Amino acid sequence: MKGNSPSDPFARTDALATLGDWLRFAEKLYTRENVALGQVATNAHDEALYLLLRTLKLSLESDASVLTRKLTPVERADVRDVLRRRVVDRVPAAYLTREAWLGEHRFYVDERVIIPRSYFLELIPGALRDWLPDHGRRLKRAVDVCTGSGCLAILLAHEFPRAVVDAIDVSTPALDVAVINVREHRLGQRVHLFQSDVFDEVPAARYDIILSNPPYEPSRHVDRQAPEFAAEPRLAHDGGPDGLMIIRKLLHQAKGRLAPHGIVVIEVGGLRKVIDREFKALEPHWLPTQDGSDCVCLFEAERLRG
């Protein structure tokens, strides 16, 4: 732990009295230290505010008046410590708070899992339903491949209350975290966890939806990640030399796992051109997202079976 030396970014923080003072300081600090964002929020204001509110055990729904709140000496020490861990040590905010949010749903997270963030948050209740018979109202079975914390399997179970949802991951530590989240969401009767490399160790089943946010970053990109992203399990990022290692296996195995009307939906990051080229014969469909990234592709069962 650094002391208050002249080079210490926290050397002159004793004068910061209110939460608003600390928030303004944190925003400038994030910018000056080139902190990587995107795991909890996409801008310094939102992430710093979240981290400060959580550290002070204040509601995330607090209105602007909370910024005038004066901090006690103990609170200032707590805030200084958590910002030091975030900005100097580059620990992701979600690992500091031990939680991540997808919409209204909270998930426990720690260093055993990638921090939940996915376009499926908007697509599961939106565009995805348009590809399902009866808009998914009679959907019976779904699976989340590379489930990590279990978050997407849980979102599927909440969205389709009659469905059984399998959740697969090769990582034992990740599945230990998924157990916590399935229990906290009280979905143990409908969300079933499997340790497996894609479908290798999963009992035979036919799925209406096979969904996945797999490792898709090319290895060379993973080698150059910012410290915050490097703090996450490499297994959750590294998709092999071209990013397609898991995706190829998933699409190959999906042929025998889909119901006749079933779909495979995969989040692929920046691989759209590569996917369109390699899997052109499968006619991938690209689902529109609010920010225009459109990085989630969908394959229909009849195309996969050729």
Rank of each mutant, 00 (worst) to 15 (best):
His135Lys: 14
Phe229Lys: 11
Gly239Leu: 11
Arg24Gly: 13
Trp286Asp: 07
Pro173Gly: 10
Trp286Val: 12
Val264Gln: 01
Arg234Ala: 12
Ala178Asn: 10
Pro161Tyr: 03
Asp21Pro: 08
Pro173Ile: 06
His285Lys: 13
Cys295Arg: 15
Ala127Asp: 13
Ser293Pro: 00
Leu16Arg: 08
Phe279Gln: 12
Leu29Val: 05
His158Val: 06
Gly269Gln: 02
Trp22Pro: 12
Ala231Ile: 01
Arg220Trp: 13
Val198Asp: 01
Leu155Trp: 02
Leu287Ala: 04
Val222Met: 06
Arg138Cys: 02
Val182Tyr: 00
Ala77Asp: 14
Asp14Thr: 14
Val145Pro: 15
His221Trp: 12
Leu102Asn: 06
Thr147Asp: 01
Ala236Thr: 06
Val170Gln: 13
Tyr207Ile: 08
Asp169Met: 11
Pro288Met: 05
Ala178Ile: 00
Arg12Ala: 15
Ala254Ile: 02
Arg117Gly: 09
Tyr207Pro: 01
Ile180Gln: 15
Arg224Phe: 00
His285Val: 15
Gly150Tyr: 05
Ala259Tyr: 05
Asp197Glu: 14
Arg141Cys: 11
Gly292Ala: 03
Gly270Met: 11
Ile168Ser: 01
Pro125Trp: 04
Arg137Pro: 01
Arg183Trp: 05
Asp130Asn: 12
Glu217Ser: 12
Arg303Leu: 02
Arg137Glu: 14
Val91Ala: 02
Leu298Trp: 09
Lys273Ala: 15
Leu60Gln: 10
Leu83Thr: 07
Gly262Lys: 07
Tyr30Leu: 06
Leu250Glu: 10
Val82Thr: 13
Arg12Cys: 13
Leu156Arg: 09
Lys273Thr: 13
Leu139Pro: 02
Val198Met: 01
Cys295Pro: 01
Ser196Gly: 08
Pro215Gln: 00
Gln225Arg: 11
Tyr216Arg: 03
Ser5Arg: 13
